[in-house]
Design a protein around this nucleic acid. Sequence first.
DNA 1: GACTGGCACTCTATACTTGAGAGTGCCAGA
DNA 2: TCTGGCACTCTCAAGTATAGAGTGCCAGTC
Lengths: 339, 339
Amino acid sequence: MDERKLAVLRAIVTDYVASHGPIGSKALVERHRLEVSAATIRNDMASLEEEGYLTHPHTSAGRIPTDKGYRLFVDRLASVKPLSVAERRAIVRFMEGVCDIDDIVSRTVRLLAQITHQVAIVQYPVSVSARVRHIELLSLGAGRVLAIVIRSTGAVEQRSFELPDHSEAELASLRDWVNAATVGKTVTDALEVMSVALNEAVSDELLRVGRLLTALIDMLSADPGARVMVGGVPNLARFNAEYETTVKPVLEMLEEQVVLLKLLGEAVKPGDGEVAVRIGDENGYVPLRSTSLVMSGYGSPESAWATLGVVGPTRMDYPSTIAAVQAVANYVGRFLQEG
Amino acid sequence: MDERKLAVLRAIVTDYVASHGPIGSKALVERHRLEVSAATIRNDMASLEEEGYLTHPHTSAGRIPTDKGYRLFVDRLASVKPLSVAERRAIVRFMEGVCDIDDIVSRTVRLLAQITHQVAIVQYPVSVSARVRHIELLSLGAGRVLAIVIRSTGAVEQRSFELPDHSEAELASLRDWVNAATVGKTVTDALEVMSVALNEAVSDELLRVGRLLTALIDMLSADPGARVMVGGVPNLARFNAEYETTVKPVLEMLEEQVVLLKLLGEAVKPGDGEVAVRIGDENGYVPLRSTSLVMSGYGSPESAWATLGVVGPTRMDYPSTIAAVQAVANYVGRFLQEG
DNA sequence: GACTGGCACTCTATACTTGAGAGTGCCAGA
DNA sequence: TCTGGCACTCTCAAGTATAGAGTGCCAGTC
């Protein structure tokens, strides 16, 4: 495609993101050094429109980019804008003195929201290679037992279940047996062992050991990556003018965590360090057709890995947002690996 | 105050909540069996306005209630509206098959949001009488140790800290010592014991045992009640017309959990089973001056106790909302006590 | 052949006007 | 103490006029 036409598209996207009003040919030649007349730009605009990169709200208005226009802009025209010194410093300072995984995720989400001024989403890191480190069983009294599973990643799960009339001794022997059977194994292998044990249990064992095994299987099957933390929701306030198309659908999507996880999962594959951008319709979820997602994986697939990103209206500042998401993903990823 | 004037105020609040338009004298006598003429109602309205219960958007518009008017309505005029059969059934069904405290809180918040059609807030239950049940120490390798504190309520906390060059044997002896010193004690007493031990530790012990004690003190000091879960945010979509006064401030308040906790804490005192209502300015937080909070404590102060509630615009359906908050608080409270 | 200036045309956004309607306040009378 | 009536006020919706921004196209120039 013509070099100048690309420059025109770039200029329109940039101006439109800043002003949120249709961009006319005259305003464009004034604000950018295009070295040709407005009439020439008009020809280029008409041609870009014919190819589907721009539209018209009505006959005599300026142009606005289409999703296809944004896509071309992101793929070929946007130079990733480096973060400011203040932003870099903010990233480093934000992680000082973290203690546990909850803390890391919640700080990351706040950081991302603050830098991008958008709604930020951070998935809890998962680890395919996580192993069972320890299983603890504690009597809660009244025939209830608390089971605690600790993974090698430091992730801790807990659940209580019924085990009528158990003694401390019985609990101790169960604890020893289950630890011997699972500790050091990967989560997948431990699940296998327990399923086999559950199938082999005879009927009168089922009531007692079966309850324990079922609870443990539930806990190990729970995917920590099914949890996400969300922040910066008040940033949606800026887009009140597009309430129906942006604010409302985003609020609903955030409440429906299933949709959210699906969007993250489809866009970013483990190990892929690139920033993924889904513009408007591309995300395949109709209510979000006028919003974009900018996402990236963070961490490493061997140890702990997950997805983080940002949601906002399609008319967002892609260069800055992409740079911010990339920087945060890199930094937090390195941080996770160092411990 | 005149019986009829109270009836007029009740009618105006009811109609205003339903229509969200100023209520005129003529419409009022038509919709309610007041048995007097519109002119008489006008006199009552003028008098109610003089006393501060109503206002005027402008000279020739109908009346709308003031915060003071809502307050009188809630205190003296609203008959708590019983829940529908469907709603009662929903409450019972919502709690089937819960397994842990996270699950209870998240179900409660969804339930409350669904019944009230407002934004729901549920604080994690705290227990003043919680005791230390068990403390577990696990080596994470590379000089790091994971400490896990289990309380008698079943609440589990975890944190990792540095303990360079530790052996399994050292960890085991630390574990035995710390369990012997704290298990069975209330959290307050355990904190006391550890602070004393920390003060008595000589300088070369500080590096090793001190790190452990500091981590444990941190974990025990952490108030589980400082966590809240929020749901039903998309319900704010209905109030888009009042974006600046309602939607935006509520979103910001929800993000600032500190403010949220303060509001909950000020309105509801442990053991108080009554539903507390804070209308407009009463909540003392300027941005929320046109929203109301309807809150209640749940659980029992002896075992586990916390606050739950609902935020919405001052023009909310108080009878239904109060009834719903009360019913959910009662049900979940009973549920908590049974196990 | 690519670019430019000029011009007629289109459409929006804004301000202004107008009339209907709803509601009030007040007064005189029951 | 209540009521019907009436003048007055203010909003809201619809209609109208106008300025301004922008386009599309064409004839002319380099």
